[in-house]
């Protein structure tokens, strides 16, 4: 499983390095969202600080939708998904590899997003390590569900609209927990013992396990 995961993750990241879709398309999307909100709440800087955690997670969620769709459009390009099945790769390995590749891309995007929130919204971050941990675990939870749903919808003609419809309700707990965890961490109230971080860990672990077990059937359909 780990060998297949490595092969898939390296391949996806190599394609991303070459095509630069994250850099040229998703990163500008993140920047535009940050700037739009900065302008929209220009007169209420205190409000911007208050809503920053929610904005962070909403932007991260929409960015991950774009990254996930990109990840599976690679496999649809020349029916490469069929090849993955034919090569007999462990489906769990394919799943983990996809999650890792998109997670690496999302971590880079979220570093940029965090910097934007600090500089554009004048938000002071105290517990950087805790923030980074909750962000990575929360994103992992989104991707754990998202990779499975992207594989399910990648053959659909309406995949661009079906994926958000399926994904957003399921990952709502991540949005809520992530926002609460960020709020607590910005306020310096809680660290890794925060129950909201615990919920993020639980969500990611449960859906990673589910995805690993079911991805074979999803690929075959």
């Amino acid at each position: 499983m780990f060998k297949a995961a490595k092969v898939i993750a390296v391949k996806d990241l190599r394609i991303e390095l070459r095509s630069k879709v994250v850099l040229n398309q998703i990163l500008p999307f993140v920047a535009v969202v940050l700037i739009i909100f900065a302008f929209a709440f220009n007169k209420y800087p205190a409000l911007l600080v208050t809503v920053a955690p929610g904005l962070y997670w909403v932007t991260a969620l929409f960015s991950s939708l774009l990254a996930l769709q990109r990840s599976f459009s690679l496999e649809s390009e020349n029916n490469a998904k069929d090849a993955l099945i034919l090569y007999g790769l462990d489906p769990a390995g394919i799943y983990i590899g996809k999650v890792i590749a998109v997670l690496v891309e999302m971590v880079l995007l979220e570093v940029f997003l965090t910097l934007g929130i600090v500089f554009l919204y004048s938000t002071h971050l105290h517990e950087l390590a805790d923030l980074a941990f909750s962000s990575i675990v929360g994103t992992l939870g989104i991707l754990a569900v998202g990779v499975t749903f992207s594989a399910m919808t990648s053959a659909s003609k309406a995949k661009e609209t079906i994926l958000p419809l399926l994904l957003l309700p399921v990952v709502a707990p991540v949005l809520l927990s992530g926002t609460k965890a960020w709020e607590n961490e910005i306020a310096g109230k809680a660290g890794l013992g925060d129950p909201w971080v615990g919920l993020l860990i639980l969500f990611a672990a449960a859906f990673l396990a589910l995805g690993t077990l079911t991805f074979g059937s999803v690929l075959e359909e």
Binding site: K11, I15, N79, A80, D82, L86
Partner: peptide, 12 residues
Amino acid sequence: YVGHATLLYNDL
């Protein structure tokens, strides 16, 4: 199996 599609990645 070799089908109509090449099963290759264009960006590699």
